[in-house]
Amino acid sequence: MQIYVMDRDYEVMKKLEVWINGNAKFEAKCFTGLQALTEAVKREPPGAVILDFDGQNSYSAVRTIQRESPQTQIVMLSENKNKAVELFELGLSGFLMKPPDEEKVSELLFRLQHPILAKLKTNKEGT
């Protein structure tokens, strides 16, 4: 699965790229701005987008992606836990707290590919 990543923090973006590419089932592509990201989604829709949230521009980008590629899963990146409410309002597929850690990214990747299997796996681990 191809995943597009956009974060204003270059270090965060590069970490995500390394972790995603470390999993043979995924390929990460990084973008430095929302416009480049949405243009890429229109040209070649990915399986998922991981997107830094910075206000109205992000909402607009999310709406564009949902319109252009309804099957693309969208994951929010934020330092603010309370932003997770917007995850549901916007119909997003996931949330990553910043700074991200490798284990959470790995769980997210599994969930993106296997929604029900991931639920069974999590339940089995008792969480």
Binding site: V85, L87, F88, F95, T127
Partner: peptide
């Protein structure tokens, strides 16, 4: 404040 945990249990909406 529970939205993140709600996501972790695969909620459809909050």
């Amino acid at each position: 404040q529970y939205a993140l945990e709600a996501f972790d249990v695969y909620a459809s909406d909050y």
